[in-house]
Design a protein around this nucleic acid. Sequence first.
DNA 1: CTGTTAGCGCATTCAA
DNA 2: TTGAATGCGCTAACAG
Lengths: 336, 336
Amino acid sequence: MPVTIYDVAREAGVSMATVSRVVNGNPNVKPTTRKKVMAAIERLGYRPNAVARGLASKKTTTVGVIIPDISSLFYSELARGIEDIATMYKYNIILCNSDQRLEKELQLINTLLEKQVDGLLFMGADIKEDHLDTFSTASVPIVLAATRDPDSLLPSVTINHFQAAYDATQTLIERGHKRIAMIASPPSDPLAGLLRFEGYKQALHDAGLPLHDELVTGGNYFYQSGLNAMNSFLQLAEPPTAVFATSDEMAVGAIHAVQDAGLRVPDDIEVIGYDNIRLAEMVRPRLTTVVQPMYDIGAVAMRLLTKYMNNEHVDDHVVQLPHRIEFRESTRTENV
Amino acid sequence: MPVTIYDVAREAGVSMATVSRVVNGNPNVKPTTRKKVMAAIERLGYRPNAVARGLASKKTTTVGVIIPDISSLFYSELARGIEDIATMYKYNIILCNSDQRLEKELQLINTLLEKQVDGLLFMGADIKEDHLDTFSTASVPIVLAATRDPDSLLPSVTINHFQAAYDATQTLIERGHKRIAMIASPPSDPLAGLLRFEGYKQALHDAGLPLHDELVTGGNYFYQSGLNAMNSFLQLAEPPTAVFATSDEMAVGAIHAVQDAGLRVPDDIEVIGYDNIRLAEMVRPRLTTVVQPMYDIGAVAMRLLTKYMNNEHVDDHVVQLPHRIEFRESTRTENV
DNA sequence: CTGTTAGCGCATTCAA
DNA sequence: TTGAATGCGCTAACAG
């Protein structure tokens, strides 16, 4: 029932090859016949079949995107960066949630490869051998966004988490704090999470401060875990006077735990977060936080992928975007 | 270079039709030959080409999803519901951001149709004639999520915004308030937005309360607009004693405006929001709000779409999901 | 239960 | 500048 390139050819009194040429903007077509064909296309309401085109040309102008959870404040921001750049380069994206489950991740990679995507963008904390094995069966480029494989074999876009955590901790140290707690990442995030812990440790060490085990708790990046962590800190004989959380949600949870206990942020306890999601500006006091440019990470990762898909030259397959600290009211303006 | 169904057929010593049968789980294959074929598939690392399959079968097991902004707290939650159900029914989704721009929306519909999606899920406040015209050129089913066309011609999944707004307003009325402000929706949302305003008006009217023009301001659903709106209310000679905002972000902005002015929520001013995004639980006081089941709207819309795609019977093409009010601390527990 | 044969709608040589 | 012919990899009758 749908009108095909044949119908247009007949209607315009030319061959299908000619129709194909005008549809694809091939310049080798006489303006008059081009006009004829355009008219026929218009008249028939012809809509090119991208699947047929994909089969013939071996390009689908579609890329696969594997994301842990699109409803996450963090990843949805990343996804927007990805999609914007994809659109800019005429690609569509097939989006899949993985929930970071290995099995599902591997299955999604295969499904997307079956669908003949021109490239793959992968997000997820932990890159195992299994991932690498599956990736290696792909004949299209793959880029990691907001994560890296242990040996940095694959192209990736991240920030320097070690340095970012170091800077955050140092900020607190400079304010005179001796007991700085950390609400850390879950073990399921062995790379970025560990790096942040190392940065925290190093900053303490460089300042000659001891590392107190009881001042480090693992969270799961969500609000409630930050709230819980802070509550337990508050029950310590000697509670911390400052807290560094590895996500903004956890940091906000910590703030509320402090407030619920009748104390004040930043007067009694200073808090610094991580990511700079929009939530950071939607609390009182507004959150001081390490800026991880989520949108840019997504955008740059997608741009990198387009380069690979077009066989363009890329200087460095591992890119680290700059980070900084956005100072708001959950930390004090002057040093103690 | 990639291995095709032919290669597998040769390797297994059968015809390609047989390979196709085992790949597609057709029961009409002798167990022994099935085993042979499976082994060949394994040995060669065969991966079926979904594009070729799509061309031959006229099914892509892919649906197009047009969403205003995936980084929005509201829509990303919807998207998750959509994707989960899509996965459950073996579909993948091509996700596209429209920013609610008419031109882009129409272009996206066409692109997705070119890609031969098996169905289309559309989100966006305003459905114009242009949309309907473009939809009518599609030969695949289309479902609207979290919106409706003016004449309800298309299948859609929403809540009853009129009633929800009525309920929210009435809740405030029951607490004895006489001056209830509304931070309303933008004019770009003529359907759901208007319905909420009508619900507010009706509730006031039914209670014999006058509608004060100065107590109604339009917002754009974002935090800052709620904050600004509340600030201007606060400068009124006679400020409101309660506020109903048509989004949680705006409601939280309103709370902060109240707090920044040295007043207290709910003691001085009660606030009720709309949507019940996760933010509602990440503020102090936690937000009382109208629950719009975003995830379910997405899930039900996708389920509805699968029914159409499978030519299953559907009882009612316009579905309204139930809403309710979640009471938290931005409203008082007892009546005044 | 299995093989043969046609397309699916298009891009892309190759000739003309 | 144009047309004819071929094949992309697979599904789906149909025949056996």
